[in-house]
């Protein structure tokens, strides 16, 4: 039934993923193969992770998929995004919580390949019950090194499966130049050669930072690092 259920594409939910590169903006498909929107944003919740034992800190886990104009417009970024969301709300003031995006719980998600497949039918699956932290707000945050100097912006966030959740493990930080969504800074085997060379050169300053070394301050939209990163995100995906 689903147009892409048996394409033999790998289910990405079982390994590490980059939130922006692999999850954001993907098509949402329900258990019947019907389309119901896009992954307009991703809900993150500080979650206490049990295993490993040594670390008790709250880690950010993916707890839901956000969809609909309220989520999409917010991602237009900065002032423009704020104004657009506000206008979206004013469009119909009689409707409560209109500026809160629609949400699908991560437990209703079955697999992620070229689209995000739900384990449920689309009828009535959307909820508008809370407003939480969003991946779309994490990306674009300014990143400060231990000396307080800005070294770039958050381009993407890497998650890995841990205790049944996808948990934030590192941030990808670079100068916000165009082309970081193309994937060339994440894998070194993607052609064509010429495009790869140009895009990788543009993103030669991109580094990867462990989540433990980063202190995310949501209200001021900045990330403070505890050490200066040097590692490149090159070879994570083949």
């Amino acid at each position: 039934m689903s147009a892409s259920a048996d394409r033999g594409l790998e289910n990405r939910l079982t390994g590490p993923i980059d939130g922006v590169l692999h999850l954001l903006d993907r098509q949402l498909i329900d258990s019947q193969g019907r389309l119901l929107g896009k992954v307009d944003d991703v809900e993150l919740t500080p979650t206490y992770v049990l295993d490993d034992g040594d670390e008790n800190a709250d880690r950010l886990a993916i707890t839901g998929i956000l969809t609909g104009p309220a989520a999409l417009l917010d991602r237009f970024g900065g002032k423009l995004g704020k104004i657009l969301v506000e206008r979206w709300g004013q469009n119909r003031v009689s409707e409560p919580h209109r500026t809160r995006p629609w949400r699908i719980d991560i437990d209703d998600v079955e697999r992620l390949d070229s689209a995000l497949h739900l384990s449920v039918q689309r009828d009535g699956v959307l909820r508008r019950d809370r407003d939480a932290l969003r991946l779309g707000r994490l990306t674009g945050m300014g990143v400060l090194d231990p000396a307080g100097e800005q070294i770039g912006r958050v381009l993407d966030a890497r998650f890995e499966p841990d205790g049944g959740r996808l948990v934030l493990c590192s941030l990808i930080v670079g100068h916000g130049r165009p082309g970081s969504l193309l994937g060339y800074d994440r894998r070194s085997d993607q052609g064509p050669l010429l495009v790869r060379a140009v895009v990788r050169w543009m993103h030669r300053h991109t580094v990867i930072v462990a989540a433990e070394d980063a202190e995310i301050d949501w209200p001021t939209a900045t990330v403070r690092l505890r050490s200066r990163p040097t590692e490149r995100p090159d070879h994570a995906f083949g």
Binding site: A3, D25, R26, R75, D113
Partner: peptide, 17 residues
């Protein structure tokens, strides 16, 4: 192969804006 048509990919690779 991927089941995705042109503008799915345009948005995924260029971002919403």
């Amino acid at each position: 192969i991927s089941g995705r048509a042109t503008f799915d990919l345009v948005r995924e690779r260029l971002g919403p804006r």
